[in-house]
């Protein structure tokens, strides 16, 4: 791989990580509006919102460092996690190749969110944080089973190597399904958006954030969604072209397919979102636990070599 390819792809990656998520959000909003027979905001509306937030001074409900630093840590973690994913054939900053490190760094976004929420005497922020933690608790075993099945099949935990090494058996296909489900739940899409439920608990932790702190935090959450979906889209698109893609041109091909799959995923998510109503937290826990118990069978299948 040439140095130029590295630099060019890394540059594209950074631009995608920082500036694509608001666009995806705008597109999703538009699709939802169309399905619900509304006019909807312009596609670029999320950019406008972000710029407005970032230009305003925040109002502080506390002097606590945990609350004040949380948005910055969330932002840094989300971007760092996104930087270890493959863009074409390039990983921009490879402090790790391991899927667990990726997930743990990404989880720091949620941790910042929870610590900030719990560090205030405010029942709304507390409740938001509380729900975020419970969602994480309920989805973690499903995610684990998906990764476990892939690891049994591909004999590696490296993000860049799994899609190249995986052989498509029944269990792997099911594991892809579980991974997609986990990504959907972790991303906090409707009906799993209880932690930031706007009408119900005043957007949870965000009820006390304002100005650029709110802007940075919201941006971080969008980047987190992007990172999760980019992981899924890489796992889907690389196996499609892994036998024909070589050289810089092959990298470009992979990147284009990754982007197409990402848009496809985001569109389908918007469709699902527009047709669902928010679940209650105990319903989510019950549902995820059910999925976990059923998906143990997937691991058994994988262990049997199917």
């Amino acid at each position: 791989m040439s140095g130029y390819e590295r630099i060019a792809f890394s540059f594209i990656a950074v631009c995608l990580i920082l500036f694509l998520p608001p666009l995806l959000d705008g597109v999703a909003r538009k699709i939802k509006a169309k399905i619900q027979l509304r006019q909807g905001a312009p596609i670029l509306q999320t950019y406008y919102d972000l710029v407005t937030f970032l230009s305003m001074e925040p109002v502080y409900p506390t002097e606590r460092l945990a609350f004040r630093l949380a948005p910055y840590i969330a932002f840094a973690s989300a971007v760092s996690a996104a930087l270890v994913l493959p863009y074409g054939r390039v990983i921009p900053v490879s402090f790790t190749g391991d899927i667990f490190v990726f997930l743990y760094v990404l989880a720091m976004v949620s941790i910042a969110y929870m610590i900030a929420g719990f560090s205030l005497n405010n029942t709304y922020t507390n409740t938001g944080a509380n729900r975020e933690m419970m969602i994480m608790l309920s989805i973690e075993p499903v995610l684990g089973l998906a990764i476990g099945t892939l690891a049994l099949n591909a004999h590696t935990l490296r993000i860049g190597a799994i899609p190249f090494a995986v052989t498509f058996t029944l269990s792997v296909l099911l594991a892809y399904g579980l991974l997609a489900y986990s990504v959907y739940v972790e991303g906090g899409f409707i009906p799993f958006d209880v932690a930031e439920a706007e009408q119900e608990i005043l957007e949870g932790v965000f009820s006390e954030y304002s100005g650029y702190l709110l802007g940075i935090f919201k941006w971080a959450l969008m980047i987190k969604r992007f990172a999760l979906l980019w992981l899924l889209s890489s796992f889907i698109s690389i196996p499609l072209v892994r036998n024909i893609a070589s050289g810089a041109l092959g990298g470009a091909l992979i990147l284009v397919i990754q982007l197409m799959v990402l848009f496809l995923l985001y569109t389908s998510i918007a469709v699902i979102e527009s047709m669902n109503a928010r679940l209650r937290i105990e319903q989510i826990i019950r549902q995820n636990a059910g999925v976990f118990v059923c998906s143990i069978a997937v691991l058994v299948l994988a262990a049997l070599g199917w």
């Binding site: 402090f95 790790t96 190749g97 391991d98 004999h155 590696t156 490296r158 860049g160 190597a161 190249f164």
Partner: peptide
């Protein structure tokens, strides 16, 4: 790990 494909090593 045993049986790992080439380029599959994990690192941190």
């Amino acid at each position: 790990a045993p049986g790992m494909p080439s380029g599959g090593e994990t690192y941190f």
